[in-house]
Design a binder for these strands. Structure first.
Lengths: 147, 147
DNA sequence: GTCTGAATTGCAAATGAGTCGCAAGTGCAA
DNA sequence: TTGCACTTGCGACTCATTTGCAATTCAGAC
């Protein structure tokens, strides 16, 4: 997904503080990683990349959950039984949101599809139509490579 | 989803044998349960219901996986990090397939949506269009009750 | 700039879903 | 009816995630 340039350290700190989270080193490392990831990232990937920098797995976990609770990131299971984390759109709209995800059954690759790729037919049951109640769309199948 | 009447014990046995699985008591119990479940069932739900009948958790698990491997059932993670199993359409078409699933973020309830509720816009990338590569569609959000 | 309380971290231990090994039991084809 | 491969039950085990807690580090107040 498009990205509005690499955020500065101050940008990251601000984003954390705005969410009432302290800007600690491991937290910043996690946040930076999420900013730079093109698709949702699993805890394992994150921990593996961050371990060399000396951050504890439990700390990475807690931070991921903190970011999720604070509404900065979102935690999903894309159908392969692995939690993945993805940054949510921030105030200046530089991050995307609401796009469908596609997970390959074969290789496990996760990709983001453009918004609008999937249309939900309105059904008139209940006060809110289905479309308005949906917060996330996930498709599974074979990616082009594995086709 | 619609069901073509309660299957007889012999129906169940036949379905297993056709798949080269022995018709053992716990296997039949699991299969019957899946037939009667209106939506995908988690292992825990199944084990809890079948435990009183004396079936072991591990056995239930293995059977669920056997049925999946045999193509009788399908195993999915609907986004909440819980494996759920669902019967696939059998030869006489009495079971459904290919319908989207909706999982409530709030209460965790899983429901099946009618086929056609979700439309995938064709994108012209690759030899097969996206639509043709998708095997499953999952929506998440608030169910009507939790709305 | 220093201080202080509260938020965080790191480590180790706990938890829990799901899996595996193996001896005993059972379905089914001959 | 019989033999054997398939299954079961049970306990042990794995591995991702969580938790407890003492030590450390932020960030606002002085």
């Amino acid at each position: 997904m498009a990205r509005a340039g690499k955020p500065s350290l101050d940008d990251l700190k601000t984003r954390l503080r705005d969410a009432d989270l302290r800007a600690t080193a491991p937290r910043l490392a996690v946040l930076r990683f999420l900013y730079e990831a093109p698709t949702p990232v699993s805890h394992a990937e994150l921990a593996d990349k961050l371990a060399p920098e000396g951050w504890d797995r439990a700390t990475v976990y807690r931070n991921l959950n903190d970011l999720t609770d604070a509404g900065i990131a979102r935690k999903t299971d894309l159908g392969d039984h692995v939690w993945r984390f993805e940054l949510l759109k921030d105030t200046d709209g530089s991050h995307t949101d609401a796009h469908p995800h596609f997970v390959c059954d074969e290789c496990g690759e996760v990709s983001c599809l453009p918004e609008g790729t999937v249309e939900i037919k309105s059904t008139r049951n209940g006060p809110l139509r289905l479309k308005e109640r949906v917060s996330e769309i996930q498709l599974k199948g074979r990616c082009e490579r594995c086709n």
